[in-house]
Design a protein around this nucleic acid. Sequence first.
DNA 1: ATAGATGCAAAGAGTTTGCATAGGT
DNA 2: ACCTATGCAAACTCTTTGCATCTAT
Lengths: 132, 132
Amino acid sequence: MRIDYHNHMAQRSRYTDEILRVVSDAGRPVSVDEIRDALRESGVGTATVYRVVNNCVEGGKLKKVELPNAAARFEPADLPHHHHFECDSCRKVYDVPGCAQGVADLAPEGFEVSQHEILLKGTCPECQEASV
Amino acid sequence: MRIDYHNHMAQRSRYTDEILRVVSDAGRPVSVDEIRDALRESGVGTATVYRVVNNCVEGGKLKKVELPNAAARFEPADLPHHHHFECDSCRKVYDVPGCAQGVADLAPEGFEVSQHEILLKGTCPECQEASV
DNA sequence: ATAGATGCAAAGAGTTTGCATAGGT
DNA sequence: ACCTATGCAAACTCTTTGCATCTAT
């Protein structure tokens, strides 16, 4: 009786715990590069970080935040529904709590909406400070 | 003065008019591949289509629609503010008229919002039909 | 002859994957 | 010994760019 037949690497990487901790501690969605940077002393390879985070997404521990023209970010899967802000200056992505009203209702008749994304862009507080 | 050897094309490509016509006629944002397909008889190269559409974006004739994990689409620049729907099945992108209320106000204190994007995902009418 | 537009191929960024090997049990 | 996670490099997609050539003055 094999329950996790296709879920090969599930929970088995030696890096999983530390990667989950990095993502959780970041307080904002982080990229594979940021994760790898945080773990640089371990010597972990990029491909492994990709494999681990993808595995965690499949396993319901992480959520992938996909953005136009930018590396995907990863965040804990258990956060309540929210959206994101991408800083045009430092490219960091921040959480935006809440949601706008009637978003899904925007779709014209006949379109079946299964999910929606709202992405705000502009300048984060730090980069506003830096430019003064 | 910055020297800008290549990719001038401040002038006009022999393909510009036809490309603008294809984008306009499509009625939805179209990708470079779709444009090239529509012009396949002309033998135009991919790089040239990219150069022409980028030029049109700079010239204010087209607007680039950037999506996560998908080729950019291009639409006429003079459309009123609207958003987009991406079909999970056929990957085509459709216009969604209007906007949700209070979108920019979602940002936490201190974040300066310059623009926002709303992307709906789901199944377009055609693909719903096809799956019945 | 000159300016610049075009096609092709290479490069680049982000991500996945094939393969040989390292490592844990 | 076995099984699989790992690192490296190759592959893949989308896009840009270097360069030689072609086109229209």
